[in-house]
């Protein structure tokens, strides 16, 4: 997936447009309480997938920057965290709105809500750590180490812990699985393209941020 090629950006745009239109217009299963807001599945959930993919990209480049000592890898790592944080915040706020109207409270201390907030805190800590170090090479090395160190914990936080306790989210604890909503194959036809589309848009945002930062750096060194 070359950085300067356009096809995947266009693909992402088409998928997102398609999922937005289809997300509003397609028929959904009749569900109590959630009602029509089930359509949020196409908008709220892809935010989290994009965030997780972006954070994984960041860990990948952190590992690469530890081995290569190349400042470009370090910038890639931090910019994908920046893009991931945007998506994480969007995911939290859309989740809070959705929760307000279905669970009755914007913050209902649901495990997934809490742990997602903590995962974002983890990456804020990463950004704070970067600001605390002045020297460029040391900053790259130390923050890469923290990023890699924190990643397994984030995986435990987001994928393992919610399964151990009851949650209001589907698919956790005593709740019926995601498939209870998803049985409708038409919903799946919107949901999967939505996820792929938003992930591609996330990669595009990260891409733009990286290229901008790269330009700024080149300007500074001249």
């Amino acid at each position: 997936m070359s950085m300067y090629k356009n096809w995947w950006k266009v693909l992402g745009a088409i998928l997102v447009i398609y999922s937005t239109v289809a997300g509003f217009l397609m028929k959904t299963p009749e569900l109590p309480i959630i009602r029509e807001s089930i359509r949020n599945l196409y908008f709220h959930v892809p935010m989290w997938f994009s965030m997780i993919i972006l954070f994984s990209i960041s860990v990948f480049y952190s590992i690469k920057s530890l081995r290569s000592n190349d400042p470009a890898d370090d910038i890639k790592a931090v910019e994908s965290v920046n893009a991931g944080v945007i998506f994480g915040l969007l995911g939290i706020v859309t989740g809070a709105i959705w929760a307000k109207f279905t669970w009755g409270q914007a913050w209902s201390f649901d495990v997934k809500q809490n742990f997602a907030a903590i995962a974002i805190l983890l990456y804020f800590a990463y950004l704070v750590l970067r600001n605390a170090i002045d020297e460029e090479q040391r900053r790259a090395k130390i923050s890469a180490i923290y990023n890699i160190f924190a990643f397994p914990i984030m995986v435990v936080l987001l994928f393992v812990l919610p399964r151990l306790s009851d949650s209001l989210h589907p698919g956790n604890g005593g709740n019926p699985g995601f498939n209870a909503y998803d049985l409708d194959s038409r919903m799946r036809m919107v949901f999967y393209p939505a996820c792929l589309g938003w992930i591609l848009i996330g990669c595009w945002i990260y891409n733009l941020l990286y290229r901008l930062r790269d330009l700024e750096r080149n300007k500074l060194s001249k």
Binding site: I34, E36, S37, N40, F43, I97, F101, T102
Partner: peptide
Amino acid sequence: KIYVVVAC
């Protein structure tokens, strides 16, 4: 509830 989706 559709407004919830619009808001998001």
